[in-house]
């Protein structure tokens, strides 16, 4: 029966206003949530368990304040919750994060890992394929559907449409929104999550070679031109050609 791991990350609520103070984003006032695509990863992991049995472990890398998203995952229905952290870590780069997560996944004895297509803070989409490479596993990214009869089969976008792909062997699978409905925590789940213990583990991470220089608000766009009435569409079409040169 599969040992299933799902990666979850704590991020600011996507409705949160992002404030920059000095040269860093100030997140002291935001509400924190599970990164939205990770909810699809949890759902896929739980569906996998329902098909094949086994256990689902939610794994996060972060300091103690990340325990909340693990408990949220527990309330939704995962079996175990694990946090990997080392007090010496600070602003880890992708190489460090992936190395530490890969080590934790190995230590947990996982057979398959689900994660989000991108985290809502980084927007990167690097972690799934990067962890897979470090494990020497297959990876499929941005899946919109999964089925588990006779092995894992996923639907993933390809040029011109989508493809049904079967996964051979161990894999890291990153999840897009797709058509699935994610389950929400129920009262029993929330009660269980309150009492749940987070298993904190350690790992090694190589020194970071990418360092943050600054964070800043997005560049303000110069005010655009605004016209009243449908007939102005003709003028806009002309400007798209003569001023913007985009058509």
């Amino acid at each position: 029966m599969p040992n299933i791991v799902v990666l979850v990350k704590r991020v600011p609520d996507t409705n949160a206003r992002i404030v920059v103070s000095g040269d860093r984003v100030d997140l002291s006032a935001v509400k924190w949530v599970i990164s939205p695509y990770d909810e699809f990863a949890i759902e896929t992991a739980l569906q996998h368990k329902e098909a094949d049995g086994g256990t689902v472990t939610a794994l996060t890398l972060g300091p103690a304040d990340s325990d909340k998203v693990l408990k949220d995952a527990k309330a939704i229905g995962v079996d175990e919750i694990v946090r990997v952290w080392n007090e010496s870590w600070n602003e880890l780069d992708s190489n460090a994060i992936q190395s530490a997560l890969a080590q934790a996944v190995t230590d947990l004895g996982a057979d398959v890992v689900y994660c989000g297509k991108t985290a809502a803070d980084t927007g990167a989409g690097s972690t799934g394929p990067g962890v897979a490479e470090r494990l020497g596993w297959a990876s499929v990214s941005n899946i919109t559907d999964a089925s588990f009869a006779g092995g894992i089969t996923v639907t993933t976008p390809v040029e011109g449409g989508s493809a049904k792909v079967s996964v051979l062997g161990n894999a890291v699978i990153s999840c897009d929104k797709g058509n699935m409905k994610v389950r929400k925590p129920n009262v029993k789940g929330i009660m269980m999550a309150k009492r749940a213990q987070v298993n904190v583990v350690s790992a090694d991470a190589p020194a970071s070679s990418v360092t943050i220089v600054s964070q800043s608000p997005p560049p303000a766009k110069p005010a655009g031109k605004k016209y009243e009435g449908g007939s102005s569409a003709e003028e806009v079409a002309r400007l798209l050609r003569d001023e913007a040169n985009v058509i």
Partner: peptide, 20 residues
């Protein structure tokens, strides 16, 4: 999407970081 994915794997193979 595809090139970000493959670049992430090539970087990980070489023990490098990636900036997307």
């Amino acid at each position: 999407p595809q090139s970000k994915d493959v670049a992430a794997r090539v970087a990980a193979r070489r023990g490098l970081s990636i900036v997307q």
